[in-house]
Write a protein that binds this DNA or RNA. Structure first.
Length: 669
DNA sequence: ATTAGGG
DNA sequence: CCCTAAT
């Protein structure tokens, strides 16, 4: 195997590490209002995080013999393996978020089979500002259309930035609805090319590695006239106005455009000029007949002429999530062929590698052969977004984020394909299926599929908005297994990977050997929000932040609620014991003492649990719910609670009485 | 970052 | 479990 560089991932019981407490806490110090605004993060951020998580975190797995759950510190490290010699180096790249970039916003025709995208330039440069998460730390990077202005950030971005994110959006901007957003996260193997490029891109306007795929690779599909429908534009307009709340008069749309590196000046020029055209056209459109001018801009490389038919492109005609055929509509994750980041194929926007685990010298103890997989990139299949054309890029991003977040929260499931054929037998082992460490990359691929939450029929114009939020109803808390407590850890229990699976990814019954595919997608925890919170983009964005997306997706803005994990009896016991000894005011200590290993139990959780325990102990057994806690424990709870309450009182008394020394902290007898 | 308390 | 406020 002659991989130049390889990142090995194992998707075996992988769990996204929780957001560091610090981060969360820090967030909490920010006043709620402000935080809310800040949470209007941009797609960039979210994608960065997601991609960062997906692509980077896993790496540390090969470091140790993966007995240990990934610890948080590993988030920032990437291990690169050079060729056979396994000469590994670890880069600290700061937040994984920094390693992904929004390379481009592409304007796409919303037609089913349209993959043509027309890059748009932004009318207002200021609008194009992007703040990376790095901004949090005082660094700012701004992308101005073709220009990338980089200050102080040079290194702040991180040493490892082989990734890029393509955000394309398409739609009818005249009515500012029916906007489709393609999100593509691509992991680029060639990071040093990135670096060098980055420096030169003040002029080059690109900032991504040489094999970046720009629009060209989205082109393959062709326009399909069959898709045209005669549509009642007016009515849908009404719908839209009602539902999407895009009441603002359509002024000039602003679009952010970032020519992705493309290294080719010529192309860049073309694009630029084209952008200009588009822009002016749009302008015209907005002044003349807004209704008819649904300008689907696309570029096939030379031909931008707009068909009449296209112009009449029906607002109505929108793909339904469910109707997306996994076959051709994005959302595929390909196993890769380790040669190059991109294969120029537009649809190949995801890749994943199953390597013949070269370096895994017996490091895997338990099972014989482990299959190593790497998700090189992925793409969110169908994301529908409606947004007023008067919206700013910032709001668009936010909208994308919302939708994306929501999707991650359960709207997506994963399919496994072997040799292009779908493997539906969830219960089969990898081996049975024919996936082994010895078979090669391209055989295996994954697909992201929308969860068929709703039937096609239900999607009517009035439903458009729900399109955006269609994912929301699906709570993240999909537990593949009964959340029951078979292996709820007690005191020192094993750090079992609490994998949260998105969508109904897995229903399989598990034998002792969990199949990697079962765990490929770990939970994107509720912390996304916290992770992503970033100072509001820019003034421009601010203005339309109001206009921004739908109230509907309000929920999406919120971080996912953490999954519910009822305390097991043993946990309760541990808690009780700890509190007995430490008292009720030292939850941090309690945590360390009794739940140090349980990442998902924060001291706040413990405190809360104690609260409910006290309550539970006081109510009649009939009123209690959930797993019954032994009366004996509850008694101890009451006792301890009484004792420590008393102690507290004493302490306070002493404190106020005089300046005596605080009473020594003694464990209750 | 922790703690306390309301929801 | 989440959210806030106050330490």
């Amino acid at each position: 195997m002659v991989l130049k560089r390889r990142l090995d991932y194992e998707f075996n019981g992988y769990e996204f590490p929780p957001v560091p407490r610090a981060a969360r806490s820090a967030r909490r110090r920010v006043p709620f209002k402000k935080r809310f605004q800040e949470n209007q993060m941009c797609a960039f951020d979210l994608l960065a995080v997601v991609a960062g998580k997906l692509l980077l975190e896993k790496d540390t797995a090969l470091e140790s013999s993966n007995i240990e759950p990934i610890d948080e510190s590993s988030v920032n490290k990437v291990r690169e393996i050079e060729g056979e010699n396994s000469e590994a180096k670890v880069h600290d790249q700061g937040s994984p978020a920094r390693s992904v970039f929004v390379s481009e916003l592409l304007h796409v025709v919303p037609e089913e089979d349209h993959c043509h995208k027309e890059p748009l330039c932004c009318e207002n440069d200021n609008n194009a500002g992007l703040l990376s998460p790095a901004a949090t730390s005082g660094c700012k990077e701004k992308f101005y259309g073709d220009k990338v202005v980089n200050r102080e950030i040079k290194n702040a971005i991180g040493t490892f930035s082989p990734s890029k994110v393509d955000v394309g959006f398409s739609g009818n901007f005249d009515d500012s609805i029916d906007t489709k957003v393609d999100v593509k996260v691509e992991h680029d193997l060639k990071d040093e090319s990135y670096k060098s490029e980055k420096l030169e891109n003040e002029t080059a306007g690109g900032m991504f590695s040489s094999d970046s795929t720009l629009c060209a690779d989205h082109i393959p599909h062709c326009f399909n006239p069959a898709n045209e429908d005669v549509v009642n534009i007016v009515s849908s307009r009404d719908d839209d106005e009602n539902s999407s709340g895009c009441t603002q008069p359509s002024t000039m749309k602003r679009f952010f455009r970032q020519t992705s590196r493309i290294g080719d000046r010529r192309i860049k020029k073309i694009l630029a000029s084209r952008c200009w055209k588009v822009a002016s056209r749009l302008k015209d459109a907005s002044f003349s007949n807004r209704q008819g001018d649904l300008k689907p801009f696309y570029h096939t490389g030379k031909n931008y002429k707009l068909d009449r038919s296209e112009r009449l492109y029906p607002i109505k005609k929108r793909r339904r999530f469910s109707s997306s055929s996994p076959s051709n509509s994005g959302g595929m994750i390909y196993t890769d062929l380790a040669q190059k980041g991109c294969n120029g194929d537009g649809s190949a926007n995801g890749s994943l590698e199953s390597s013949s685990n070269a370096g895994k010298q017996g490091s895997f103890q338990p099972r014989d052969s482990q299959v190593k997989l790497r998700i090189k990139s992925f793409r969110v299949p169908e994301l529908f977004i409606e947004i007023p054309e008067t919206a700013t890029i910032g709001s668009l991003k936010r909208t994308v984020v919302d939708a994306f977040t929501a999707i991650l929260g359960g709207g997506v499931r994963v399919g496994v394909l072997l040799h292009g054929r779908k493997v539906r037998e969830d219960h089969k082992t990898l081996l049975q299926t024919g996936i082994s460490h010895s078979n090669h990359s391209d055989a295996l691929s994954f697909s992201l599929e929308p969860n068929p939450l709703r039937s096609n029929g239900s999607v009517c114009s009035g439903d458009l908005n729900s399109a955006v939020s269609y994912q929301t109803p699906q709570p993240l808390s999909r537990y593949p297994h009964t959340p029951s407590t078979v292996h709820q850890s007690t005191g020192a229990a094993s750090p079992e990977p609490q994998t949260v699976i998105l969508g109904n990814l897995v229903e399989s019954d598990h034998d002792s050997a969990p199949s990697p595919t079962d765990n490929i997608i770990a939970g994107i925890s509720s912390d996304l929000k916290d992770m992503l919170a970033v100072p509001a983009m820019n003034a421009a964005a601010g203005s339309l932040a109001v206009v921004s997306a739908n109230r509907k997706s309000k929920r999406a803005e919120m971080a996912q609620r953490r999954i519910r994990r009822p305390f097991s009896v043993s946990e309760v016991e541990a808690l009780v014991q700890a509190v007995e000894q430490l008292g009720t005011g030292r939850w941090r200590d309690v945590k360390v003492r009794a739940f140090d290993h349980a990442k998902h139990r924060t001291y706040v959780d413990l405190k809360d649990k104690w609260k409910t325990l006290v309550h539970t102990a006081r109510i009649s057994p009939q009123q209690r719910r959930g797993e019954a806690v032994p009366q004996e424990l509850l008694d101890r709870v009451l006792t301890a609670h009484a004792y420590w309450s008393h102690q507290q009182q004493l302490n306070q008394q002493q404190l106020s009485d005089s300046c005596t020394f605080p009473a020594p902290l003694l464990a209750m007898p």
